[in-house]
Design a protein around this nucleic acid. Sequence first.
RNA 1: CGGGGUGUGGCGCAGUUGGUAGCGCGCUACGUUCGGGACGUAGAGGCCGCAAGUUCGAGUCUUGUCACCCCGACCA
Length: 491
Amino acid sequence: MAENFTTRAENYSQWYNDIVKKADLAENSAVRGCMVIKPYGYAIWEKMQHVLDGMFKETGHSNAYFPIFIPKSFLSREADHVEGFAKECAVVTHYRLKNDPNGGGVIVDPDAKLEEELIVRPTSETIIWSTYKNWIQSYRDLPVLCNQWANVVRWEMRTRLFLRTAEFLWQEGHTAHATAEEARKETATMLNVYADFAEKYMAMPVVRGVKSPNERFAGAIDTYCIEALMQDGKALQAGTSHFLGQNFAKAFDVQFLNKENKLEYVWATSWGVSTRLIGALIMTHSDDNGLVLPPKIAPLQVVIIPIYKNDEQRAAIGEKVDGLMSKLKAKGITVKYDDDDSKRSGWKFNEYEVKGVPVRLAIGPRDLENNQAEVFRRDTLEKRVYNFDNLEEVIENLLVDIQDNLYQRSLKFRDASIRKADTWDEFVSILDNEGGFVYAHWDGTVETEEKIKELAKATIRCIPFDNPLEDGKCILTGQPSKQRVLFARAY
RNA sequence: CGGGGUGUGGCGCAGUUGGUAGCGCGCUACGUUCGGGACGUAGAGGCCGCAAGUUCGAGUCUUGUCACCCCGACCA
């Protein structure tokens, strides 16, 4: 490599920043904490959006759009909700600028003060529930199953590209149901959609579970999540699904007449994943040579690079590759033939490697002579020469194999990174030395959870579904406990 | 909001006791190259973050100010 990449072992967060920059995914912007998502990074997001959007539609949801601005009074309607978000809200106070009479460019026109300030949405529950109030009168109007793709703003103290930015892109589903059971079922369905997406498309194994009270979404009865493990041993919440009970229905007075002609509050859910998934993707698979993308999320799955000395050779390779390109495209494989003459082949090899393109073909005069091509797979960095005939099938299978290998590799790492601790010393020692998830007993109180967070910098990531019951003693207090929960240091 | 650091061509940096602003990468042109980030030659490109001050003279010294980055507290 001509450009030196920071290795993961040297400095993990620097390595992450290098990947984002060198794979041309995103950059910092003129506005503090906000990012510019560059075309290649955005293409990954579009792939994610496309798959998820299909899954949402498949499960009966429709897209809609609600405004970016929320009247300040709306936010305060649900007590827990406002407490959770108030500290990080951007506020719009004026609607006009004017020329500075002192000649200093433009200034905020003090005469254009808004009567009621507007909050830039940190999430849309309040504006959506104030709207749903008008949509719902009868049980016949239910369920309401909406999703929106949007940007939100949370004024974070410290930001990192994709993982935590002041503005980020996400989708937020907001549903209204006639019964608690139905809403709970919805919450579970969407969590499973996220888990399937993470595992089958991103090749990222996740733990499904429920959040402890301390980690719960502001305004929710229960928060469910999928938790992934990054290569540095830190956990990352990759998606959440909330059962909101009747909290928002009551706050916004959303009632419906049931079949017995009785007025009832509706039951709500909300669920979301964000551009943070791109950060998760990077930290799950990438290596010291750059980005590694699972084929199902890669904007470009196959790149073909000609190696030639003159125009005749270049033309001959182009001709040879033509048929293969059509066959690959017919199989739905995204492929690019890069015969850009201004870049040398070696340069291209590195470029596509850094960008994580799963499969690279190299074809030179020698290959032409022998009716073959050199096939390189990004996940294992292996090179093999294949006969040119039926190469499209080799590639098709290879993409499946890479997808599977990435998942198995991450799964193996994840499973090896779940360790049990039975004493406090053991607990801290694992966190300090190995990282990963620590499966340990907890007495179930918020106080203990907070104390552990303070002392060990680790939080309860979740209580996994189907968690076996087991008598034990709390890792910190020694109080009796019925089950182990998953702790980790987290992003 | 604490602690640390950095602002100098597009990017990464050097710049000594204050004295004509430099290097690498990238960029442009031409040529030679081409199986893992090629090489040569010739070019283009800078109010040294901003504002005051000291000085004959400031990238360099002083003061102020702004911005960004890293480590914490807060968080998806």
